[in-house]
């Protein structure tokens, strides 16, 4: 299996429930699961496209699920898809995801939505719908494109 250089690792109070949610909501596939002698999840990985995310428990004092820290997130994972964002959103909602932002077209050319999972992790999902020039993006957003616009 080809490993991408960067991988997010997310903490859950109930990581096994998270595996079920992430499969049902986003179509992630479980590719590795390790359980200890007591049947607790020790490590797991789910794949999507060419990437994986690691789903784990709250394994240290500093590693917490949003469910344990008043819903705060210190990072979010962005899911890039090719295809129908609205259908993706409908599936996430049906699986129990809370839609924080309905699918909407963005100035940079993607259509995106934002979803909170049952433990409070926030996921953004986007698909490209049209090519936008740096000039058009700057005019629409009032931002300055400094570097890296394809």
């Amino acid at each position: 299996m080809i490993r991408t250089a960067l991988t997010s690792a997310l903490c859950y109070r109930d990581p096994k429930a998270a595996l079920k949610f992430l499969e049902a909501a986003f179509g992630f596939e479980l590719v590795m699961l390790i359980e200890d002698n007591d049947g607790n999840l020790a490590h797991s990985e789910m794949s999507f496209g060419d990437s994986v995310v690691m789903i784990g428990s709250e394994w240290s004092v500093q590693s917490k699920s949003p469910a344990s820290i008043d819903g705060f997130n210190t990072q979010t994972v962005h899911i890039h898809i090719e295809g129908d964002v609205d259908a993706h959103c409908a599936r996430a909602r049906a699986a129990g995801g809370e839609i924080l932002m309905e699918p909407a077209d963005q100035f940079y050319g993607d259509r995106t939505y934002r979803c909170r999972d049952p433990e409070g992790h926030i996921w953004t999902v986007g698909a490209p719908i049209r090519a936008v020039s740096p000039e058009e993006a700057e005019a629409a957003s009032g931002l300055k494109v400094v570097k890296g616009w394809a």
Binding site: M1, E29, L30, V31, M32, L33, E35, D36
Partner: peptide, 11 residues
């Protein structure tokens, strides 16, 4: 049986 490993791959 506990203490298990699971791996999956598409072929």
């Amino acid at each position: 049986m506990s203490s298990k490993i699971l791996v999956a791959l598409r072929i």
